[in-house]
């Protein structure tokens, strides 16, 4: 197999894993699958790109702005589109409509404000997207940093779930009423999770921008890939998201070469179907936890 293919697969897979982790973080205490996640990712990329291009701010300032703004937007989404419907029925599915509406609103506003043109984003120095040869493959320092950052983030998020607060989030995921009776306040955990889930979405967008450009087209495609990754990995599992991201990224890269680039999406969803047929809860999902 062409070593470049492995590089491309692992890099794309890392991005998908980042998007899936954002999904997972806000799914856990709410059992809500956020349909606006792709738009939050896209908005993160747009804010960072604009801060750098228009105001010539350094990368890390643009990234921090994007994380803060999108985290806040996640919190707003939780307050207006999620908390009210969960208060009415914690097990209902009205959030499908409300988070989808929120997604449409963001996509529409971003389209109005920024227009359709993609914005190029430079990686933070000393990283570059210039490739060099490593073990026969062409890689850039930015790609290596991206893959490493994703692994570090997955490890960080997983270690949070081993703290008492993290166990409380898992408890809410498993049995909301039992958690209430133990003094756990699901509303507060759900607010924090949307804040962090939003910030991670922005981070995914910020990290994707130097490779894919920042554009409104980023939202829908990353929503679908991120969804497939979360489902294959087992919804809620961040270790699963990382592995599933690599699997889907590699299958896609392979499909693009062996078949043609037009078959990438089909390959992604074929992987998803096959995995879910064999393991309905995904590679690392717990059958005991509630599922969508």
């Amino acid at each position: 197999m062409d070593p470049d293919l492995i590089v491309n697969g692992v890099v794309a897979g890392s991005l998908y894993a980042l998007v899936a982790m954002g999904f997972n973080i806000l799914y856990r205490p709410t059992n809500v699958f956020n349909f606006a996640q792709g738009d939050l990712v896209m908005l993160g990329a747009m804010i960072c790109a604009s801060a750098m291009a228009l105001w010539s701010l350094p990368w890390f300032v643009g990234a921090a702005l994007a994380l803060a703004a999108v985290g806040l937007l996640g919190l707003i989404e939780e307050r207006i589109a999620v908390a009210p419907v969960l208060r009415r029925s914690a097990s209902g599915h009205a959030w499908v409509i409300t988070t989808l509406s929120f997604s449409m609103i963001i996509a529409n506003l971003v389209g109005r404000i920024w227009g359709p043109d993609p914005i190029a984003v430079r990686p933070p120095p000393p990283l570059t997207t210039e490739t060099f040869e490593l073990f026969g493959a062409n890689v850039s320092s930015y790609q290596i940093a991206l893959v490493a950052a994703t692994i570090a983030l997955a490890a960080g998020v997983e270690s949070f779930y081993r703290t008492r607060a993290g166990k409380a989030v898992m408890a809410v995921a498993e049995d909301r009423e039992a958690a209430l009776l133990r003094g756990i306040a699901p509303e507060s955990l759900s607010r924090w999770s949307f804040l962090f889930g939003g910030a991670i979405a922005a981070l995914a967008g910020v990290l994707a921008a130097p490779l894919l450009y920042a554009s409104i087209g980023l939202g829908p495609s990353l929503l679908l890939k991120g969804f497939a990754t979360a489902a294959v990995g087992g919804i809620g599992s961040n270790r699963g998201a990382l592995i599933a991201g690599y699997v889907i990224g590699l299958v896609e890269a392979l499909a693009a070469v062996v078949l043609s680039p037009g078959y990438q999406m089909a390959a992604t969803f074929a992987v998803m179907l096959i995995v879910l047929l064999i393991r309905p809860h995904g590679l690392f999902g717990h059958p005991e936890a509630r599922s969508v």
Binding site: R164, K167, A168, M170, A171, E174, D175, E177, A179, R182
Partner: peptide, 20 residues
């Protein structure tokens, strides 16, 4: 007995301390 079934005995006890 509404426990957190996928968590360990010790984690269930720890959750009893949550917020204290």
């Amino acid at each position: 007995r509404r426990l957190f079934r996928s968590q360990s005995v010790r984690d269930n006890l720890e959750l009893g301390l949550y917020g204290g």
